[in-house]
Simulated assay, not measured.
Amino acid sequence: MPAERSHTSDERVRSVVAPVVESAGLHLEDVRVARAGSRSTVRVILDLPEDQVGSLDSDRLGDASRAVSAALDDADVVRGQYTLEVSTPGVSRPLTEPRHFRRARTRRVALDLVDGGTTTARLVDVVDGPEGEVLVLDDGTQVALSRVREGKVEVELKRLEDDEAGSARHGDDDAGSARHGQEG
């Protein structure tokens, strides 16, 4: 039997999880509940607030995961047994919302434009402009967000090496994940 998703379950879980995530100073990116037979998987995607640059470190993700798990246990909003997966969107997330672009500041981004053009540069800032929000790139280019069909962060090997060296010192994990088996 294929996994089933319930919008109602998503919203019930979101209503329990959102205050916990907010009190941890994080952003609740997404909640998905998928049921397969008698078990469910609850996926909670967390991110830093849009005004912060960098990655959500694994210690902070773990703390948030434990708080989310406790809140779900207390509220008992998921029927039966479930597995809780708490993670970050990771670097491969498509940039689809203004907040995604704000979170990608300092990163190289590849932009596919609605007119068929493309550009790749480091994203410096997202500012208000005459056409709405505007991406400011390190090469001096400014691109109205309304002109962007699709955006993604470019993985930079040198930067990845630098980030990993920092992670080893500070416990950062760009695409970290915490999993908890739950009996609901």
Results as ranks from 00 to 15, higher is better:
1 M>W: 09
3 A>F: 10
5 R>P: 01
5 R>A: 13
7 H>I: 06
9 S>R: 01
10 D>Q: 02
12 R>V: 04
15 S>V: 01
17 V>L: 12
17 V>E: 12
19 P>T: 04
19 P>G: 08
19 P>V: 09
21 V>L: 02
22 E>Q: 05
22 E>Y: 09
24 A>P: 00
29 E>F: 02
30 D>M: 05
30 D>N: 11
31 V>Q: 13
31 V>K: 00
32 R>V: 12
33 V>E: 05
33 V>S: 06
36 A>T: 12
37 G>T: 03
37 G>V: 03
37 G>A: 06
39 R>N: 14
40 S>H: 04
40 S>C: 15
41 T>W: 04
41 T>M: 11
44 V>N: 03
45 I>F: 02
45 I>P: 00
45 I>N: 00
47 D>P: 15
48 L>H: 00
48 L>V: 07
49 P>Y: 09
52 Q>L: 12
54 G>N: 13
55 S>L: 01
56 L>N: 00
57 D>K: 08
59 D>I: 10
59 D>Q: 12
61 L>K: 01
61 L>F: 07
61 L>Q: 05
63 D>R: 13
63 D>Q: 14
67 A>Y: 01
69 S>F: 05
71 A>G: 03
73 D>I: 10
76 D>L: 04
76 D>W: 02
77 V>N: 13
77 V>F: 06
79 R>V: 05
81 Q>V: 06
82 Y>P: 09
82 Y>M: 09
83 T>D: 15
83 T>C: 04
84 L>G: 04
86 V>D: 05
87 S>Q: 15
87 S>M: 14
88 T>S: 15
89 P>I: 05
90 G>K: 00
92 S>I: 01
92 S>K: 07
95 L>Y: 02
96 T>D: 13
97 E>R: 14
98 P>W: 11
100 H>Q: 04
101 F>Y: 15
103 R>N: 10
105 R>P: 01
105 R>V: 14
107 R>I: 03
108 R>S: 13
109 V>R: 01
110 A>E: 15
110 A>M: 07
112 D>V: 09
112 D>A: 12
113 L>H: 08
114 V>L: 10
114 V>F: 05
114 V>H: 06
115 D>V: 03
117 G>T: 07
119 T>Q: 14
121 A>S: 15
121 A>Q: 10
123 L>H: 01
123 L>P: 02
126 V>S: 03
126 V>Y: 05
127 V>I: 11
128 D>G: 07
128 D>R: 11
130 P>R: 15
132 G>M: 06
133 E>P: 00
135 L>Q: 01
139 D>T: 04
140 G>A: 07
141 T>I: 02
142 Q>V: 06
142 Q>P: 07
143 V>I: 15
144 A>Q: 03
144 A>F: 13
145 L>W: 14
145 L>C: 12
145 L>R: 11
146 S>W: 02
146 S>V: 14
148 V>A: 10
150 E>A: 13
150 E>P: 00
153 V>Q: 01
155 V>M: 02
155 V>A: 08
155 V>K: 10
155 V>Q: 13
156 E>F: 03
157 L>Y: 13
157 L>Q: 02
157 L>R: 08
158 K>N: 08
158 K>T: 11
160 L>G: 02
161 E>Y: 09
164 E>W: 15
169 R>A: 07
173 D>R: 12
173 D>C: 05
174 D>G: 15
176 G>V: 11
176 G>W: 04
179 R>H: 09
180 H>W: 15
180 H>V: 13
181 G>K: 03
181 G>F: 03
182 Q>P: 07
183 E>V: 07
184 G>L: 13
184 G>W: 06
